[in-house]
Amino acid sequence: MVYNEPMISIKSLRVDYENVSAVQDLDLEIQQGQIYGLVGPNGAGKTSTIKALAGIIEPTYGEIRIAGIDLEIEHHKALQQLGYMPDFPPVYENLKVWEYLDVFAAAYLIPHRERPQKILHWLTRVNLLEKQNTFIRELSRGMRQRLVLAKTLLHDPKVLLLDEPASGLDPIARKDMRDILLSVASENKTIIISSHILTELKEFCNAVGIMERGKMVVSGSIEDIRQRLGSNRRLKIKLVKPDAQGLERTINMLNNSRNCSNVESRSDTEIMCAFKGTPEDASWVLKQIINLNVDICDYTCEEENVEDIFFRIGAQEVS
């Protein structure tokens, strides 16, 4: 079923704590199938936003709609559409893996007869099938995170709220988690995923919101943000061998070019600069470098990723 209205709609959300406003007048709309990355440093208000969406904390005011259902008015109906995963895995140490999932399958009102099938399905998806009869206290941190993810997906929610799902994981566990999330993301679910580690998000988010001190600094699809804030690319030039004169000539030429800025040499064979031109302009720059008789072995024009946008926007607008 395709919703005409946004899958998640937040209007004027405010969340206050003692002496501090965690979220201030947040407006946000996320469409079905969007994977929305909520980015920001620690204390930016990401967790409070996600907790308010999950119905765990009561907002000071504001309206939250999940699949068109008002969270305050039809609380239970709205919660049925949601799957929430916090940044650390709250588990029952003395239960077995399948028992844990069975408990939450019951919490999400999945009928008794359907539960074993669903549990097996999700244990397979998160690669924990062989651990189904293991006590949770014997699982590693990564396995616990995957178990909690399986719990989050058990009732097939339309909306997933994932608060720093890979925090505290080692690189292998992080990759496992990313692979599972990518496979889940392909199922047309609406996902909000928060992180302060931007590399976690840039591979599968098609929209981002950058939060800082409780406020949304910028929000939208990555393409949309690029267009709004001006397309920024990076030029990366690599020389065949160290050539001080060639390096200097290239830097001078780039500094004189109107599309290039922040030119810097990373090593005696590498130059990097911000680039604000079209692909044709990049081609023209390449021709100029060749005309300078500099031997280059690599010339790349990279698109700005989420991380670059965050650092640029976060640094400029917030401060």
């Binding site: 949601l82 916090p86 709250p90 029952y92 939450f104 999400y108």
Partner: peptide, 14 residues
């Protein structure tokens, strides 16, 4: 203490 209560609170369980 373990905050599993949050999972129950965010579930539609009556």
């Amino acid at each position: 203490m373990v905050q599993t209560i949050d999972f129950h609170r965010s579930s539609p369980s009556p």
